[in-house]
Each structure stands twice: as C-alpha cells, then as structure tokens.
C-alpha cells in the first residue's frame, strides 16, 4: 500500500486539474453530444431522440450557407494572417533603428484581442460615411459600402483578425532568431540572393513554427464570434453569419440546445478533419531538426 501510494502520489496532485477538466470540459463535451441527438429545448424539455438536428444542420439553407461562409472566412483569414505576420517578423528581424518600438507597435493590436471595443471601432471605421469611405473619397474614388456589400462585409471581418497578427508575429520572430547565422553567411558566399535565402533557408527551418501557427489560427478562425457578432451582427443578409453565431442564436435566442449542440459537433468534426489533414501533411513539408 505504501509503495502504491508512493508510486501514485503524483496522480493525486493533479486531481484539482482533473476535477476541472471533468466538470468543465469532459462533462459538457459528453452531454452536448447526447443533447445533439435530442430536441432538447431549455423550456420545452425533450421529446425526441434521433438524427433530426444533424439533418437540419446539413440540409437547411441557412445552416449550409453559414458553413460555407465559415470556410470562406477561415481560408481567407488564416493564410493572410500567417503571410502578414511572417513578413513583418522577417522585416523586424533585421537590425533596424528603433526596432523594439516597431515590434511593440505591431504587437499592440494583439493585446487588444477580439475585444468589444475594437469591434465597435471597426464598425465606426467601415460604416457608410465612416473614416475609410471618407479617405477613399479624398482620392476621388467611389468607395464600396463595406457594411452592406456581402463580400466586403466578410472581408472587413477578416481584416480585423488579420490586423491582430502580433502574437503570431512574435512566435515567428522567435523562430527566425533561431535560424543559424552561418547558414546565411554560407549562402551569401555561394551568391544566393536574399529572396533565395528566405525560401531555401528561412522558410524550411521555421516550418515547425509555421505548422504550429497554422493549427492555432485555424482553430481560432473556425471559432470566431466577436467580430461578426458586433461589427455586422451576421449581416448583411447573413453574409457574415458564421457557424458560431448560429450556435449562439440557437442556444441563447431560441433555447434549442439540441440543435445548437449538433451545430457545435459538426463544427468540431470539421475542425478535427482539417487538423488531422494538417498533421498528416506535415511529413511532406515540416522539417524537424532532430529528424536529421
């Protein structure tokens, strides 16, 4: 008994975490799966069990459209954000004057995060007769109506997330610092241009970090809520209604927990699929130095 306790005492120390995990993660996870197969409404109870919610999520026009918009949003935001973050990190990796000031300035939007205040500011900037439209008019051009044109509305939501590239940039910056200088020196001696050095040395050596950022940004993009909810409230005409907004509306406006749970599970499976694809693909493009 004494030996058993000695060997397993570590397990007991993680029990507080385990309790939190079970209560706040595992239980909701499991119960939402159960509810997704029911017509559970907070105030009307549950009367049916079956696949009706999944059928609705995958066939109802509104839901299919929201899924398509979520894909569009994720596949616009993630590559754009990674490219911008890497580009700025690359520039800030040079020995420039006041580089720390620039690093701080670029990082600040990330501290602000997806906050309500920033979303309200974004709305004020892009509304009709807002600052952005006025600036475009100053150049004699006719600006689009960012808030009522479906394509532009989705783009400005993406732009908000892309603008907050600071944390991703800092991670890239740390990776860039880890690339050995002697590789660049050797490449220079061999006559490689900066461009060539970037694609043949820098990018391959930081692929593990690109992979990490890709996964985290993908997860974040599929879960985006604040921006579209506050800036456009899913509009115009549902053009920025991501799945997360539909889940919120189903759960807390219609109190249809069964449908909301099914939506959340569909989103989870999609995310799992893309994460699995990413992990599978890494053997083809991610270079780990310890693999030799």
């Amino acid at each position: 008994m004494k030996k058993w306790a000695k060997n397993n005492v570590g397990f007991f120390f993680i029990i507080p975490w385990l309790i939190g995990f079970l209560v706040f993660k595992a239980y909701p996870f499991g119960s939402s799966l159960y509810y997704s197969f029911t017509d559970y409404n907070l105030f009307k109870g549950m009367t049916k069990f079956g696949l009706m919610n999944y059928q609705e999520v995958l066939t109802k026009r509104q839901n299919v459209t929201a899924l398509a918009i979520t894909f569009k949003y994720a596949f616009m935001t993630v590559p754009l954000k990674l490219i911008v973050a890497l580009l700025i990190a690359y520039i800030l990796n040079f020995k420039l004057k006041a580089v720390n000031l620039f690093r701080t300035a670029y990082y600040i939007p990330s501290i602000l995060g997806g906050s309500v205040a920033i979303s309200v500011l974004w709305r004020a900037l892009f509304k009709d007769d807002g600052l952005i439209q006025q600036m475009i008019r100053m150049f004699g051009a006719t600006p689009p109506s960012f808030m009522t044109d479906p394509n532009w509305a989705l783009f400005i939501i993406c732009l908000l997330r892309v603008w907050q590239f600071g944390s991703t940039m800092v991670i890239f910056l740390a990776a860039l610092k880890g690339v050995p200088e002697d590789l660049y020196e050797a490449a220079s001696l061999d006559g490689a241009t900066k461009w060539r050095q970037f694609f043949s040395i820098t990018v391959p050596l930081i692929t593990p970090v690109i992979f990490y950022n890709l996964i985290t940004q993908l997860v974040q993009a599929f879960q985006e809520f604040n921006g579209p909810f506050i800036i456009t409230n899913g509009g115009p005409r549902g053009a920025t209604t991501l799945m997360s907004i539909l889940i919120y509306n189903a759960a807390f406006k219609a109190y249809d927990m069964g449908l909301a749970s099914a939506m959340a599970w569909v989103l989870f499976v999609i995310l799992l699929f893309f994460t699995a694809i990413s992990f599978w693909s890494q053997k083809h493009w991610v270079y780990y130095s310890d693999e030799g």
């Binding site: 306790a5 120390f13 029990i15 209560v23 239980y27 119960s31 907070l42 109870g45 549950m46």
Partner: peptide, 28 residues
C-alpha cells in the same frame, strides 16, 4: 493529500449524480 483528494473526488461524484438525475428529468 489523500484525504483532500478523496474528499474532492466524492464531491465530484455528488455533482455527477445530481447532473445525471436532472438530465433524466424533463428540463421544463
């Protein structure tokens, strides 16, 4: 440590019991 852990586990079990019973009943 063992005592605290046991108490926390028991309280978890209590929570679990209550949750499952409310789940079984009609939410209304």
């Amino acid at each position: 440590s063992l005592g605290i852990a046991a108490a926390m586990t028991l309280s978890l079990a209590a929570c679990g019991g209550s949750a499952s019973s409310s789940q079984g009943a009609a939410p209304a």
